[in-house]
Structure formats: C-alpha cells, structure tokens
Design a binder for these strands. Structure first.
Length: 224
DNA sequence: CAGCAGACGCTTCCTGCACC
DNA sequence: GGTGCAGGAAGCGTCTGCTG
C-alpha cells in the first residue's frame, strides 16, 4: 500500500505515516511483548482481516519497524519481531496506553482481553515510585487471558503466561478497570466477588498501588 | 496448516464547489 | 467564514483461493 503523506516536516506526522494506519500500532503493541508468528498475531488481534495484517506487516517491514526472521529447523517458521528502531516505540505506546486507559474502565460489548494487551496495559499503568519494598510476583487471570507481573528491585517484568510460585493469583474480569482506577477498593472487590484470590489477600492492596490508572479524562458536555 | 493475496462491495475521507 | 453536498479516491472487511 502506498503510504499517504501529511506533507509536513514534522516528526509526529512522519510517525503517523508509519504507524498511524488502522491496526498498525496494535501490531507494534503485540510485538513489543515479543516476537510473534503470523497466526499468533491473528490470535492476538482477532478482529483484524488477514489481508490487512499481511499489508501492515509488509508496510512496517518496509519502514524498518519490523523484520521477518526465519526460525531454525525443524520449525522453519517465520516470526515477526521489532527492529531496534521499532522497539523505540515502547515509550510512546506505553504513554498512549496510559492516556487511553483514562477514557473509561468498562469494556464495551464485544471487547476482548488478550494476553499481549494485558501485558502492555500493566506496563502502561505501572508506578515505579510505588515499587519500593520487597519483591513480589503476581499472576493475573482476566477473561481467560493469563499473564504475570514481577516487581523486583523497583522494576517491572510483565509477560504472558502463568507464574509458578506467584505470591498472589488474581482472577477477575471487567472489574479490573475499576480496581486500577481506584473506583473499586480491594476490600469491596473481594467481598463483592469481583476478584478471586489465591495467596496473601493483603498483596491486592499493594497491586492497586503498583498499578494505577491516572484520573479519568474530562467528559465533554452533552448539551442536554 | 501457515502465510499470504486478489476480488468485490461497503465505508470513510478528501476535494471542489455552491450557498448563506 | 461556516456549512452542506456530490463525486472520486482511498481504505477496510469478508470471502475465497493459491502456494509451499
């Protein structure tokens, strides 16, 4: 596909010409979690048409954001991964995710939670200033997506999959947004059955301190 | 089965123009 | 200057089929 130009000598305009197309930044988001095969990207982005995924990957490859790599035998499969240049988008993607999270806590009908989106959500709302204290490991299960987060030495490591020996396993659903927004307290979440915990329940308080969505965006007046 | 790619129809965007 | 409309271009989604 021929990339349209905004005709501006502006870094932001140039960035949008590369990752501003529909789906492009979500592909980058998933690749920030790790290299993915074509079918894994389709699973992570269940609504993307296959030709659009193919087209975006090609465009991102031409732009130097993504590269194709052939796995060694016996698999010989193709994986897509970010180049160093593409990986530089992490700071921007995390900031955009944090900004977007302020728009609302409730998923819309048909919205899905994927492990990759959950990992990037955790990275987006992690608060390093709250990470002092003993190391802790969480396993998070949200609507079938399982990810884990480990906070050690003030730094976060978040990745898809379970965490054997996790200090706390949190099973929840749409309530996660309210919990991270602070509109649902850990106590209310537990007593109301919005979360199920395995491990030390006190660590849920620490979780909501470590991961916090900034105050919600102001709502435009409806004029009614 | 993975990894595309083409055809087709629909939607959205852009541009130019007219009108107030 | 702001708004609305029409036509063309571009983009998107679904379906289907091809290749290794």
């Amino acid at each position: 596909m021929v990339q349209r130009s905004y005709g501006e000598a502006c870094g932001l305009a140039h960035a949008l010409e590369v990752v501003g197309e529909r789906w492009a930044l979500l592909i980058v988001r998933d690749l920030l979690v790790g290299p993915r095969r074509y079918t894994e990207l389709r699973k992570g982005l269940p609504r993307i048409p296959t030709n659009i995924l193919s087209s975006r990957l090609k465009d991102l490859e031409l732009s130097g954001v993504v590269r194709r790599r052939l796995l060694p035998r016996p698999s010989s499969a193709v994986v897509y991964e970010l180049t160093e240049y593409g990986a530089d988008l992490e700071e921007a993607v995390v900031a955009l995710g944090r900004w977007g999270a302020r728009l609302g806590t409730q998923p819309r009908p048909g919205d899905v939670v994927t492990p990759d989106s959950l990992v990037m959500a955790l990275r987006s709302v992690f608060r390093p200033e709250a990470a002092a204290g003993p190391d802790v490991g969480y396993e998070l299960r949200v609507d079938g997506a399982v990810v884990h987060a480990r906070v050690a030495g003030g730094a976060l490591t978040a990745a898809p999959g379970p965490l054997p020996g996790a200090d706390l396993v949190i099973e929840t659903g749409p309530a996660l947004g309210a919990l991270l927004h602070g509109t649902l307290t850990p106590t209310d979440a537990i007593t109301g059955g919005a979360v199920r915990l395995t491990g030390d329940p006190a660590l849920l308080d620490r979780f909501t301190g470590l991961f916090r969505i900034p105050p919600p965006a102001p709502r435009p007046r409806t004029g009614a």
